[in-house]
Design a protein around this nucleic acid. Structure first.
Lengths: 211, 211
DNA sequence: TAACATTCTGACACTTTAGTCAAGTTTGTA
DNA sequence: TACAAACTTGACTAAAGTGTCAGAATGTTA
């Protein structure tokens, strides 16, 4: 039986192997989703005998839940450095840049989370939902402040963030369609830079010429 | 043995039951993806004995492939009425409206297709890929024409369409996040109308005030 | 209504997957 | 170095899933 108490040994084999399993699992989940993933696939992916995986986790949902936590924590970390005290132009540009960079460097996590959304977000705890709402609200308030200062046009902040989120996530989740559209075999750094430029330009100034 | 030759009987029981199976299958696939779906689930969903499903389709991938075709055909149908000879403002507004309406009325198909994207689009045939590219190109050329006429600012048409596509699809695939963000239990018609207004306003005019 | 084709389905054989277990090895520590 | 705790793993059982088939039911047509 494994111990849940934190001991010296937890910095050793246990945490190392748990990390190894989670690492392999997120890859498989990001390809097949929760329902499509077999525990055998996870074991194979991380080169461990199945029984060894069972030694650390009691089933695949336990692994899955841990991964949900990890991904959410990863987001917080990735975006906490964004400073809302910048001018809107720069802040939005930085936000888009950070989100695109995250999408580029964490395709697997992005897809993993999208799978969870498709299945209805059943594994998001109430706490996690609240956290997401809270973080979003925080950013929305900044945008509302800018609007009140006349630095942005009046707009619906919630839909505004959806446009930002959707546009940036797209390049990870629909990389196939993006590749098709851009006529590339694989998206490059330059593609992401152009995406950044296009999104920012469009979101900030729109596509209609000033009359 | 089933016949592939088209006969009178094809308008009857056969096509009726195939439709019934496809209808149930797309629901299950949209919840669990290809790998997560068991043929038993499909049979249960459409109230048929498993062996009866096997009478019409030899396995689940055959059903899946038929569904991919259907969904792509559905899109063509849904968007073929968009007239590119309108002024950009109206054309873009109509395009967004049509896409949002499609998202609202075809959440299942949208999610189904997103699952396929996440798994890498393996089941999109070369022909289907080419078709997608072709349709996109057609719209891009219209946008490029508008730019050349000075009706739109110079912009990267490919990323431009990605913003449109991503923003509209979001409301179907990430309905959970959208509901969270908008503080709703379920998205209403009004939410989609506001989404339309927000997207169009932002895409056309941006969020920065005219200086 | 006879006879032929199509459709339906319970029951079966076979394969894959989940999860357990006991017997082994390694590691930490006194 | 000895002993316990932690870790590893092949082998196993039970359950779930795939796909087939023979025979019953229904539909079609002359």
């Amino acid at each position: 039986m494994q111990k849940k108490v934190i001991k010296k040994s937890d910095i050793g084999i246990r945490s190392k192997n748990e990390a190894k399993i989670l690492e392999g699992a997120v890859i498989v989940f990001s390809r097949k989703g929760l329902d499509g993933t077999r525990l055998t696939d996870i074991a194979t992916e991380c080169n461990l005998p199945k029984a060894n995986v069972y030694y650390y986790f009691s089933n695949k949902t336990e692994i899955y839940e841990r991964l949900i936590e990890n991904v959410l924590a990863g987001w917080d970390k990735a975006f906490e450095h964004i400073k809302p005290d910048l001018e809107p132009e720069d802040a939005i540009s930085e936000y888009v840049k950070a989100k695109l960079e995250y999408a580029r460097n964490n395709i697997i996590e992005s897809k993993f989370f999208t799978f969870e959304m498709l299945r209805g977000g059943q594994f998001l705890s109430k706490k996690q939902r609240q956290h997401i709402v809270q973080v979003t609200r925080k950013y929305e308030q900044v945008v509302e402040y800018w609007i009140s200062e006349g630095k942005l046009k009046p707009l619906d902040t919630r839909h505004f963030f959806i446009i930002l989120w959707a546009s940036t996530e797209f390049y990870a989740n629909y990389s196939n369609i993006a590749e098709l559209t851009l006529g590339k075999h694989k998206l490059t750094k330059t593609d992401f830079e152009q995406a950044h430029k296009s999104i920012v330009q469009n979101i900030l100034n729109g596509c209609l010429p000033q009359q």
